[in-house]
């Protein structure tokens, strides 16, 4: 079973999905993704200032999905084979989960530099869900 996410819920956070918009804490300056809730650094609940990151960062953890992907990713797995999923620490400091693209996922390691690109994440009910994936930098 996939984790179904309605289109209105998806839409509510488009700035995060498309451009990784971060919340900057007015108290300590740390960045939180997504830009809602409490600051990941100091737990302040003061309103974030939203900022857009460069989109570059490094892999801090990753894994390769070789089979049994959720149904919304079945087409991708059939067409592209195994794909990587990683936690990326952006240069601004926020940690963001994302799929890897344009690479052999088994060659991506901790510390590798990656950049954000927008790709088709999946298609459901005839609607394409676009969002950020990460691509290894040359």
């Amino acid at each position: 079973m996939g984790a179904y996410l309605s289109v209105p819920s998806w839409w509510r956070n488009l700035d995060g999905r498309y451009r990784l918009e971060l919340g900057q804490c007015p108290d300590c300056g740390a960045h939180t993704f997504p830009a809602e809730g409490a600051c990941v650094e100091c737990n302040s609940t003061a309103d974030f200032e939203t900022v857009e990151p460069e989109g570059t960062g490094e892999v801090v953890a990753g894994t390769t999905i070789t089979g049994g992907a959720p149904p919304e990713f079945a087409d991708l797995q059939t067409q592209e084979g195994s794909f990587g999923v990683a936690v990326v620490e952006l240069d601004e400091g926020a940690r963001v989960p994302g799929m890897l693209t344009d690479c052999d996922p088994t060659t991506v390691e901790r510390g590798d530099r990656v950049e954000a690109v927008v790709r088709r994440i999946y298609e459901q009910e005839g609607i394409v869900r676009y969002g950020v994936k990460f691509r290894p930098m040359d």
Binding site: G2, P71, E72, A74, D75, T78, Q79, E80, Y122, E123, Q124, E125, G126
Partner: peptide, 14 residues
């Protein structure tokens, strides 16, 4: 053929 969807039944989760 796989990347272009020629040999696989695609169309999302429906």
């Amino acid at each position: 053929a796989r990347k272009r969807g020629h040999v696989v039944e695609t169309g999302g989760d429906d």
